[in-house]
Computed example of a mutant assay.
Amino acid sequence: MANENGKTVKIKLISSIIPTEGELEKYEMWLEGNCVEKGANHYLRYEEVQEETRIQTTIKLDEAKAFIMRSGGVNMRLPLNLGLRENGHYESPFGSLPIVTDTHQLSIEVTQSEKVSGRFKTQYDLIIGGNSVGQYTLEIQFTEVYS
């Protein structure tokens, strides 16, 4: 039976954004979270604090596709499906916005020997109002830590 709380993992998150009009923006964060296994899927969960706002993030990982769900300071559903355009949404205190992702790269690797570890990488165009606003790359590495 799967543990609902999952295993505690240390997460290295690297996010790169190349706006349609602008310079490369790159962010790196080290976080602590949980990795939960349910059936053939893994769920990576962590919390970010941005400008005193807490954002809960859950990433559903399976072999063919991924979903990034965020709640708290922002609410977002970001579907990632290699080679397909997918509809999602982004909500902030300023309003709701329909978004589309066009995923060019998606790789997921989870290993479970003595401890769970993995790597998730995706590259996608974010489309708002029919126009690409930039190319996004997200790379996450995670490794179980013992408490």
Rank of each mutant, 00 (worst) to 15 (best):
I55M: 05
G130S: 06
L126E: 11
S96H: 04
S15I: 07
L126Y: 10
N5M: 10
V145R: 12
P98L: 03
I14K: 15
L138P: 01
V145L: 13
G118Q: 08
L97E: 06
L31W: 01
I68Q: 14
H104S: 13
M29W: 04
E109M: 08
V100C: 13
A40I: 10
T143P: 00
I55K: 06
G83V: 07
P19V: 08
S16A: 15
E32G: 06
M29H: 11
C35N: 06
K12Q: 11
G72T: 04
Q123R: 15
V49S: 14
R70L: 07
G88I: 10
S113G: 06
T122R: 08
G88P: 00
K7N: 13
G33D: 01
E4M: 12
L24R: 14
S16C: 11
T122F: 02
S117Y: 04
K7F: 05
A2S: 13
K26R: 13
Y124Q: 06
I108S: 14
E51G: 07
T122M: 05
S113V: 05
L80D: 05
L78G: 06
A64K: 13
L44H: 03
K26W: 00
A64W: 01
S132A: 14
N131W: 03
I108V: 15
E139K: 09
E48P: 00
Q141N: 15
E52V: 07
K121G: 07
G118I: 06
I99V: 12
K38V: 15
E63K: 12
K115H: 10
A2G: 08
T143Q: 14
T143H: 09
D62Q: 12
G39D: 02
E37F: 02
I11N: 07
M69A: 12
T137R: 15
C35G: 05
A64T: 09
I17F: 14
H104N: 11
T143C: 10
I11Q: 04
E32W: 00
K12P: 00
